[in-house]
Design a protein around this nucleic acid. Structure first.
Length: 165
DNA sequence: GCAAAGATCCAG
DNA sequence: TGGATCTTTGCT
């Protein structure tokens, strides 16, 4: 992020696997929508859902392997006022505590799909403090009809900024 | 061509 | 707890 940009610390994610995961968009092969998942790692996969919301994923595997991490919640640290404006909410907890919310707060949309998150883009991932393993909780994912039993949701224990307990 | 589901959010 | 809202996908 450059000066004046907004962002925060990732506190909740979910993984989507190419094999054995019926909820992964790529479970039945490549389509127009999920093509970015098959692309190079470190790039964004942003898609539109439920008629109102975008979701941000980070492509994780080498080209041809369609796996990604959904960013579900971040703890806002920069550009809080801009996020409040975009969200129309005041409470810090309500800005980025969900995949659709954080995209709205950050102003993410179709134009961010496929962007390289490793630098040189308006959107980027930065190395920060790594949470100790003891603070990472592993649970089942949220809002799924298929493969809901897989333990692929990860969040920071004790964080006020996650989407659910 | 059409119908149904969907990695959500918010109001009531 | 249910409705809004619309895109993508797969099939009648």
């Amino acid at each position: 992020m450059e000066g004046g940009a907004c962002g925060g610390t990732i506190v909740e994610t979910e993984a989507y696997l190419q094999r054995g995961d019926a909820s992964c968009h790529a479970a039945r092969g490549m389509t127009l929508r999920n093509a970015p998942m098959f692309g190079p790692p470190g790039h964004a996969y942003v898609y539109f859902t439920y008629g109102n919301h975008f979701c941000l994923n980070v492509v994780c595997c080498e080209e041809g392997i369609a796996e990604a991490v959904l960013i579900r919640a971040i703890e806002p640290t920069h550009g809080v006022e801009a996020m409040r404006r975009r969200r129309g909410r005041d409470a810090l907890r309500d800005l980025c505590s969900g995949p659709g919310k954080l995209c709205q707060a950050l102003g993410l949309g179709r134009e961010h799909n496929r962007l390289d998150l490793c630098g040189g883009s308006p959107l980027s991932l930065r190395a920060g403090d790594t949470a100790p393993r003891s603070r990472i909780v592993t649970t089942t994912r949220i809002g799924l009809r298929h493969a809901a039993e897989l333990p692929l949701r990860f969040y920071l224990r004790g964080s006020e900024f996650i989407s659910h307990k």
